[in-house]
Amino acid sequence: MFIVITGASKGIGLALVKHYIEKDHTVIGCSRTKPDFEHERFCHYPADVTNYEEVQEFAFAVSKTHPVVDVLINNAGAASMNHFMLTDPRSAERLMRVNYLSAFACARGFIRLLRKSQHPRIINFTTVAVPLNLEGELAYGASKAAVESLTKVLAKELGSFRITVNAVGPAPTKTNLIANVPKHKLEKILEQQAIRCFAEFEDIVQVIDFYMDPKSDFITGQIIYLGGICR
């Protein structure tokens, strides 16, 4: 498979790159900074996915060497946790750009290449903060709620192209995203899960592999939360 992963320079994005390279896929990673990783089946493209023009140039550059993209993983994202009254509206706007508009722009940019795949997939990242309506995560949760809406509506609008669109909502995972979240707040989130522990990278990959599986052609418009978020 030919896989495009955004936010590929660190954290889950870079781990996904390495995982799919290990599974013999070809991966193009996109991020502003170059990851500390090289492989003959991995190519890095420097782009800011919040910049629509740069995304278009990225997709065009990919099309020159790889006319077919099988999977687009919109992993690029950022988090900011603070009370509403302590959140700068510009911070909320930035999160909307990084989390939602980047996924929108990448989906738009890669449609042409995805259409040519036998099993085209778009996979987005959401968070348990959406169904749990977590206090202190308004800006982050709202931007991810937009991603969920994007996932469901795109699934309908791209169904005629056979492109499936799904999202994975990890439970708190030990990455940079939660590095600054106080321990007691993380524990409060874990208390709301059916299985009260941090997610591991393998848990996230399991869901993505399921969405990517050629046998999952009929799985679309779905959001899978890890840890057992029972609404």
């Binding site: 278009q56 140039e57 997709a59 449609i111 259409r115 005629s160």
Partner: peptide, 24 residues
């Protein structure tokens, strides 16, 4: 409407392939 969207997608694709131009 879905056929119109498809037509535009195909046309953008042909322009990219044949003319080497990336337009929306």
């Amino acid at each position: 409407s879905i056929s119109f969207v498809t037509l535009i997608a195909i046309l953008e694709d042909l322009i990219s392939d044949r003319l080497g131009k990336n337009i929306i």
